[in-house]
Amino acid sequence: MAVRLDIELTESEKAAMAAIPSTSWFTQFIYRNAESPIHPNRKLAENNEMKQAMVSDWVTESVKGKRVLDLFSANGGFSIMAALAGAKEVVGVEFSEERIKCAQFIASTLKSDCKIEFIHGDVYQIENYFDEPFDVVLCLGGLYHIADPAFVLRQIGGLTKERLLMQTSQVLPIPGNWAKFIVRRQDKTQGGMTSIRGGYGTWFYSPGCLRELLLHGGFDIVEERQPSILKRQRFPWFFASCEPLT
């Protein structure tokens, strides 16, 4: 699901967009007179489209007039979505400098009063980056790639005033099936990526385990979403809209 912008790029802006590596474009952006590349790994592109379809209404309904923190912000798809929906301020945190440059380019083309910033950072350190919490925190992906999601969720809990929107991967909730970890090797022909030597991995937790992780982080789940049963094998995801525990 591409983000459409009612903006016309200059020739220099089109050249700048063309110079950004195609692997940085997790979310595609379509301008009036140009469009960004689609990520060369079609599976990743499809994953991102499904994720947007599942949570775009949550984002647009939650952020108007709010300060928003977007973790694992990639090339800023949800950050820009929040800005367009009326957020007061958006800060994205991402480990890839190339994706940050891509997000910064998109933000520079917007006609928006929203203050947008992207930080090259480590989610393990997020509590040290900010002096005050955010109204809304987006954690839509990425949590499944880190070694200690419980620790990161505790930090997120300290940075969230009103709402956390979270997405991660899950396993089927059958007896004895609470978690698994899959190592994925880099596929250079498909524009793959790795942040850990030898490949990168993904955690899959049962819904019950994810609920306990969120409780540990200081959150109460307001609403859960999952893809339809027919799509769950292809997109084994768990979505939660949460409020901090009082």
Rank of each mutant, 00 (worst) to 15 (best):
S12M: 01
E13D: 14
T23V: 14
T23A: 12
W25S: 09
F26P: 04
F26V: 15
T27E: 13
T27L: 06
F29L: 10
I30C: 14
R32C: 14
S36T: 15
N41K: 13
K43N: 07
A45C: 09
E49K: 06
M50W: 07
K51M: 03
W58Q: 10
E61K: 15
E61A: 15
S62W: 00
R67P: 12
L69E: 08
D70K: 09
L71H: 04
F72Q: 01
A74E: 07
G76K: 02
G76P: 09
G76F: 05
L84Q: 04
E89T: 06
G92W: 04
S96N: 11
E98R: 14
I100V: 14
I106N: 07
I106P: 12
A107V: 03
S112H: 03
F118W: 05
F130N: 02
E132W: 07
P133R: 13
F134Y: 14
D135M: 06
G141P: 08
I146G: 02
D148M: 00
A150Y: 11
V152Y: 10
V152I: 14
Q155D: 13
I156D: 00
G157V: 01
T160C: 13
E162M: 07
L165R: 03
L165C: 07
V171S: 05
W178M: 00
K180F: 02
I182D: 03
R185L: 13
D187P: 09
T189W: 05
G191Q: 09
M193E: 07
S195T: 15
I196W: 01
I196L: 07
I196D: 03
G201A: 14
T202E: 15
S206E: 04
P207T: 04
L214N: 02
D220I: 15
Q226M: 09
Q226S: 11
P227A: 00
K231A: 13
Q233V: 09
R234L: 11
W237N: 04
L245N: 15
